[in-house]
């Protein structure tokens, strides 16, 4: 049984990590990085989200099935967004209007 209690210390470190990343992302936001600021923002958000999932949500400590479900959700979201964006990104590739 995956009833292994996560220690308070782990939670505290997670909290500090999350707050530090929030500070980092806020400071980065004040600099003009062009399009990169969007990408950097989402990347840092992804790191924060994994910290929450792994420690606060116990994904690291639960049965394997939970991690499979989690990965499945992520993969399906990526399928949706990447195939949709794929259409929009390749629209201008052919020298005909609209294709």
């Amino acid at each position: 049984m995956s009833q292994s209690t996560v220690s308070v210390k782990t939670y505290a470190f997670t909290l500090i990590g999350l707050l530090a990343l929030t500070l980092l992302t806020s400071l980065l936001a004040l600099v003009d990085l062009g399009n990169f600021s969007f990408i950097a923002g989402v990347a840092i958000a992804a790191v924060k989200a994994s910290l929450i999932a792994c420690f606060f949500m116990h994904a690291l400590y639960e049965m394997k099935l939970i991690r499979v479900i989690m990965a499945g959700g992520m993969i399906w979201f990526l399928i949706m967004i990447s195939l949709t964006l794929g259409d929009y990104l390749t629209r201008g590739w052919m020298p005909y209007p609209g294709k």
């Binding site: 992302t25 806020s26 936001a29 003009d32 600021s37 969007f38 950097a40 923002g41 989402v42």
Partner: peptide, 11 residues
């Protein structure tokens, strides 16, 4: 927060 607040914050 990342997609709405950050990209235009420097402007």
């Amino acid at each position: 927060f990342a997609i709405f607040y950050i990209p235009g914050a420097h402007m």
